[in-house]
Design a protein around this nucleic acid. Structure first.
Lengths: 209, 209
DNA sequence: GTCTATACTGTGATAGAC
DNA sequence: GTCTATCACAGTATAGAC
């Protein structure tokens, strides 16, 4: 379906001098797949592209992962990116969001699994997995720590703003967001986020380890 | 690149009893393309899919639009969705955002051009066009109406929150956001957005027509 | 002028022989 | 662990039927 230009675009530097053992082959494939899927989405990525980037033959994708689908699943199953939310003190949430947004990997690194899923968002299973993960962390775990009504909604709005800000900064790259300093960014994030968390009223510290 | 399942999935109801003239053929193709591209992205959509949905032959895409690329451009060049921002009173912005988020088309309608672009976001030209449009409306036009420092940044954060909330609600469909009532949603959107606009301080009305 | 049939060429995913 | 064949489907072009 792609033109050849599509497939070759933005060639990802192939791993050099790869060791010829199963572990490093698997690792090289996973890494190359994360880059390709993250940048171009599921449909925009071919198995041959991934294999070329990894410096191995396309057939090894099937040897090690079974199918393109299965490899995508491995790569797009999100990491532990949101785990800190489980016990981060509420007053540090805005700064944590700032860090996530500010350090979001850009062009040359592996994009967020979230962006990977969005770029492949016609894959319903992938969207479903992401929804489950976000629901679990935000709507359940994190919302429990919020006082007041509509805790789930407020937690989800936090996730929405995290997503929107990250996307605008790294995927769309609007000018001001792309160039803002960390401290200025924090200022405005705090202004939007803290009211959502019912800060700055007093609140007791959580007792997380 | 697609499996056949991919191509046939979610068949869009073909137009019935189409008139055989240029205008209605063009319209049928445009409509079918918007649906397909919006749901499945550029790579996930074939010209033959679009033509089948529209009830015409694939060759007509080339007759009327020249190429798949050109058709995508027509469809993904965003509508006037953000135009109201140019002169909407600032205190009505939150409600406008709420309306956009709440009335965002869901599964069975044409998705937002924004989602269409994101799902095709390996298409750099499409992303560029979207960035230009957002920059023009938010960072330039709308930012001029904001008092205080960092107006462009604050305008872009508004666009980020609009995007994030819409995506979480319609694409990821987290539970609380997907089911919240309009009035509750407005309450929390206002809490996040108004500080960004420097409301509720006094501000003079704009003099838009 | 509006559409249909069909052909051409490349690339996709995958399986099986080496 | 690699190479090559297979075969469906992609985008595109054109020739001609209504």
């Amino acid at each position: 379906m792609n033109t050849s230009a599509e497939s070759r675009r933005g060639g990802v530097a192939p791993s050099q001098a790869r060791k010829h053992d199963a572990a490093s082959t698997r690792a090289a494939l996973t890494r190359a797949a994360a880059l390709r899927f993250g940048r171009y989405g599921y449909n925009g990525t071919s198995v041959r592209d991934i294999a070329r980037d990894a410096g191995v033959d396309a057939a090894l994708v099937y040897r090690y992962f079974g199918s393109k689908e299965a490899l995508f699943e491995v790569v797009s199953t999100s990491t532990t990116m949101f785990e800190p939310l489980r016990c981060l003190p509420l007053e540090d949430v805005a700064a944590w969001v700032r860090d996530v947004v500010a350090n979001a990997p850009s062009e040359d690194e592996v994009p967020h699994p979230v962006l990977c899923v969005l770029r492949s968002s016609s894959r319903e299973e992938a969207v479903g997995r992401l929804r489950d993960e976000i629901s679990e962390i935000f709507s359940e775990s994190f919302a429990k720590r919020l006082d007041g009504p509509d805790a789930e909604l407020r937690a989800e709005l936090l996730s929405a703003w995290l997503l929107g800000t990250t996307l605008m900064r790294t995927a769309i790259r609007t000018p001001a967001l792309a160039s803002v300093s960390d401290s200025t960014l924090l200022k405005y994030l705090k202004a939007g986020i803290d009211p959502l968390l019912k800060l700055p009223d007093d609140h007791e510290r959580t007792d997380c380890p």
